[in-house]
């Protein structure tokens, strides 16, 4: 593991019964950078994510995470601890907000562990001690900041389920950021967004990287997002890494083009250029 890497996935293999979803995959993500994981449908990208964030136990391999708080072997931590202790947050391909709660409440839930400590594990909070009130106010301020960042301050008190699709996607990112993660894993954040919303997303992600120093790991199909903001790209096909490099290197890699669109090279190049 390189000193500059926050995440190092080594020889990761994940089998479901007889199906090998991810096969001996190794890649790293550099601290403070945006690393993308791309590949055709069924390439095993989401499986990798689920292994990193603890929803699946990998069949074999190691996932190391290192940042200022310490170093962890993620495959050994179970689900909620990965977010709580190792500070890895994620979003989901099919948005998983709390639809019956307001946007603000969604962001408050994300600060559960901080608030839980402040409330003396509920007992102090029950009697409304001042220190808890202060902590709650700070939590609301953080939520307000992120709502402002994603342009949803106006809709803070609306149910998350009532927001338009694009807003829900951004709210999910804001919710993940409210856990104050060191590594943010985004599963197709641009899926279903129009061109204008995609551009806004790019801006948001670049801002997160620049202002918060959060490292980002990204799965994405939308090449206009991947190519414009990624610092480093890993390409997966059939659970195996077939290439990695800077966006420019990936764009020029014939193997990637072949994997993406078979033989039709021109169309593949069009995709890589982010023109679709």
């Amino acid at each position: 593991m390189n000193i500059n890497d926050i995440l190092s996935v080594e020889n990761l293999t994940m089998r479901f019964g007889g199906i090998v979803a991810v096969n001996d995959l190794s890649f790293t993500a550099e601290r403070g950078k945006i690393t993308a994981l791309i590949g055709p449908n069924g390439a095993g990208k989401t499986t990798v994510f689920n292994c990193i964030t603890g929803f699946y136990k990998p069949t074999s391999g190691t996932i190391k995470l290192r940042h200022s708080d310490g170093e962890w072997r993620l495959e050994r931590l179970n689900d909620f601890r990965i977010s709580k202790i190792a500070k890895v947050a994620r979003t989901f391909q099919n948005i998983r907000l709390f639809p019956g709660m307001t946007a603000l409440e969604n962001l408050m839930v994300a600060q559960h562990n901080t608030l839980m400590r402040a409330s003396g594990f509920t007992l102090l909070g029950l009697f409304g001690v001042p220190s808890y009130r202060a902590a709650e106010k700070a939590a609301i301020d953080l939520a307000r900041y992120w709502l402002d960042q994603i342009g949803l301050l106006e809709r803070a008190d609306d149910a998350a389920g009532n927001l338009p699709y694009g807003d829900q996607r951004r709210l999910e990112i804001a919710r993940a950021m409210c856990t104050e993660p060191a590594l943010l894993c985004l599963d197709e954040p641009a899926a279903g967004l129009n061109a204008r919303e995609s551009a806004a997303l790019n801006e948001l992600l670049l801002k997160i990287r620049a202002e918060h120093g959060t490292s980002i790991l990204l799965i994405e199909h939308d090449m206009s997002v991947v190519m414009q903001i990624s610092d480093h790209i890993n390409v997966l096909d059939y659970g195996v890494k077939i290439a990695d490099g800077t966006p420019q290197q990936i764009r020029d890699n014939p193997k990637v083009i072949a994997a993406y669109l078979g033989a039709d090279e021109e169309e593949a190049i069009a995709v890589m250029e982010g023109e679709t």
Binding site: L97, A110, M116
Partner: peptide, 25 residues
């Protein structure tokens, strides 16, 4: 209105998301 109560409601809404947010379900 305390974190535990919000976590209960969040659990009702989506347990998987709760775990991803570091809540001990």
């Amino acid at each position: 209105r305390l974190p535990i109560g919000r976590a209960w409601e969040a659990l009702r809404e989506d347990e998987v998301a709760c775990r991803a947010l570091g809540i001990n379900t």
